[in-house]
């Protein structure tokens, strides 16, 4: 994993302190949360995995959590003009049931906290679509004090859709690209997250100062 952080010492220090035992959860509530690290789940083999991947690609359930201004571009997809249902895409209001997390544009630190929590609550295999330039390199908010620049340093991203904002057509094209990637078996963000868990957590904890939530959300 490439690590182009320019303050390695700080990251290393956080990594050293990283005990990850739900220490930041409120007193007496720790028993409610899981205390195990995520594990890498091996995919099925051969034709079964290919069939499963086909089913996954044809039934994309979006987590309906508007994380940025790009959320406004998701709504027209439901209307009769764009009609995402014909591609097997539908919104789902709870992270437990959703499979695709659409990050709608800029993610501030405050939103990032909720994004991490929602992402971890989704059941794998889960896919992330970064929508808009802000998720790629910060977009027009690249020098803001409170907006992250690169989404893939905090959660694994499968498909980026460039633009500020991308139109619904671009979104549909992005979803079709995601489908092709899933069918090819290239979307393994869930296992990537589990393998590089420490790296992702250190990055997240570097910006989210008031953690106050469990370290393990599944």
């Amino acid at each position: 994993m490439d690590n182009d952080s320019n303050n390695k010492e700080q990251l290393d220090e956080i990594r050293k302190q990283l005990t990850l035992a739900n220490n930041d959860v409120r007193e007496g509530e720790q028993a409610y949360f899981c205390d195990a690290r995520p594990v890498v789940v091996e995919p099925y083999r051969g034709i079964l995995e290919r069939f499963a991947n086909w089913a996954r690609s044809e039934s994309l359930w979006i987590l309906g959590f508007g994380t940025g201004c790009g959320a406004i571009e998701l709504r027209p997809l439901m209307t009769s003009r764009y009609d995402m249902y014909r591609f097997g895409i539908q919104p789902r209001p709870t992270p437990r049931q959703a499979g695709v997390f659409v990050i709608g544009g800029y993610a501030s630190v405050k939103t990032m906290k909720r994004i991490v929590r929602s992402y971890e609550q989704m059941q794998g295999p889960k896919f992330v679509v970064g929508l808009g330039s802000c998720t790629i390199n910060g977009g027009m908010y690249w020098d803001s004090y409170n907006t992250i620049n690169r989404l893939d340093h905090y959660i694994p991203v499968d498909v980026y859709i460039a633009g500020c904002m991308p139109r619904p057509e671009a979104l549909l094209a992005g979803f079709n690209a995601l489908k092709a990637k899933i069918r090819a078996g290239e979307c393994d963000g869930m296992n990537k997250y589990a393998q590089n868990f420490d790296w992702y957590k250190a990055n997240q904890k570097q910006i989210i100062k008031h953690w106050e939530m469990p370290d393990y959300n599944w």
């Binding site: 182009d4 303050n7 390199n137 910060g138 690249w142 803001s144 004090y145 992250i148 620049n149 690169r150």
Partner: peptide, 17 residues
């Protein structure tokens, strides 16, 4: 408060901008 400097220090700027 220099937001640009803070952002570059904290939020992993993507090279090539």
């Amino acid at each position: 408060f220099d937001t640009k400097e803070y952002s570059e220090k904290t939020y992993f700027p993507r090279p090539g901008r």
